[in-house]
Design a protein around this nucleic acid. Structure first.
Lengths: 232, 232
DNA sequence: CGACTCCTTGACAGCGTTCAACAGTAGTGG
DNA sequence: CCACTACTGTTGAACGCTGTCAAGGAGTCG
């Protein structure tokens, strides 16, 4: 049996959201980061924007005592580091070995006010999606249970990876926990619960391969469908 | 003894963040909402933007079972309803009787791409502040304790009300709870704890008047100073 | 092989929720 | 003006979800 997998081998071309920008600014260069290395740090000058060609990135803030809240995971094709102000407001780290395209950012946000070039629209759309994601994340962190959060996370990843038969997560349990505002033990328990209910299978030696067997039930648990019409 | 209070009587003129826009679009009109009434609803067409002249507004999302997460409180001078897409992504309600200025929003966001008019800068700054606030809120909801959240909330309100000797909160305990991802009982207990520690006083018949006695200690509890330099 | 990382699972504790009672206040309408 | 009701806030007691601490297995890397 053949399965569709979000591995490097079956990689589709990187979405060309930035192709317009690339044409304008024309100074993109490729760069690689080893897993765990920092791409940019909170409060550093926001000189560059990044598009992920391969790999995955986490962006987070920390409390002074080390507690960490991951704001978002960034996958292939995603753009990060677009700031209005002069500094990055969070830290970005490569979760796995990651290849990015880099461009000077100075002319990017400024372009917003210059003329109605397509780039401006892309940046605006990016901001809109960012705001939307954060609002949903607020609701999740403030008002959902551990099981609901875990289900919502799986559905988000499933969607962003285009619903592969076998989902390969790049991040460890601790990253998931820090994204969901939980501990890694709670995440592990929630995944085990979902497995025991037959909703998914945990596969692979490090349990990072997940097969979803019942997306509707998962969605039901996640309560993600906030404006959901009643099931007919 | 005279105290400075954020009451209606001592109202300063509304910040003119939108004065530029007002000059351009020139179609602002005043409108009043009774406390508790909806200003706009999630998923409704985003036809207008609002600036608060007097009063206070809460914006929130709901889960299908009623759980609510307040994303932000908006006070006098604040602008809300600025969207890129065609719809509002959350609901806005008047917390108390509220007066707003309303303008058609269509030309507003579009102006972003048109030319580098001052309005574009204002909208960009608004977005930047919104993102910043949400990122801090994520960290609070995901990683801070009840006492820390409550302290952070008080400091935020204190700052936004310009550190009055006596802070008058427009919102009830439930609103605070839904903003902080807690229950109203927990908020009440946290406030009592802070009172018992001598950090603040709860005054007034409905306990919505708060006097902060020890802001440094409150900040210490809030852990809000994330990039805080070690105390010398 | 040894050290390390990653994940799971169990036992237990604690923080925050839930449920409840009570008191004070505001709003409403006769 | 006052009674009535709904709302608001505090506090107590018990529960339970999630965190904490701990152990152990499995995989990876040098």
């Amino acid at each position: 049996m053949l399965v569709r997998v979000n591995s490097n081998k079956t990689a589709k071309p990187v979405p060309s959201q930035l192709s317009e920008l690339a044409r304008q600014n024309a100074v993109w260069s490729e760069f690689k980061y080893r897993r765990g290395s920092e791409i940019f740090g909170e409060a550093e000058p926001a000189d560059y924007v990044y598009q992920i060609r391969e790999g995955a990135v986490r962006t987070y803030k920390r409390l002074s005592d080390g507690r960490r809240q991951i704001g978002a995971f960034h996958l292939r094709g995603d753009i990060l580091g677009v700031e209005n102000g002069e500094i990055y407001r969070f830290t970005a780290e490569a979760i796995v070995n990651t290849t990015v395209w880099i461009a000077m950012s100075q002319s990017l946000f400024a372009g917003l006010g210059k003329a109605d070039i397509p780039a401006a629209n892309h940046v605006r759309d990016l901001i809109t999606r960012t705001l939307e994601h954060m609002e949903n994340h607020l609701l999740l962190l403030g008002r959902q249970t551990a099981l609901e959060r875990t289900a919502a996370f799986l559905l988000e990843m499933d969607r962003r990876l285009q619903q592969p038969a076998l989902m390969i997560l790049p991040m460890c349990r601790r990253d998931i926990a820090d994204y969901l505002g939980l501990t890694l033990e709670t995440v592990s328990r929630a995944l085990s619960t979902l497995r025991d209910r037959g909703i998914l299978s945990l596969e692979g030696k490090m349990q990072r391969k997940i097969a979803l067997h019942d997306r509707p039930k998962l969605a039901e648990i996640a309560l993600a469908a906030r404006g959901m019409p009643p099931p007919k």
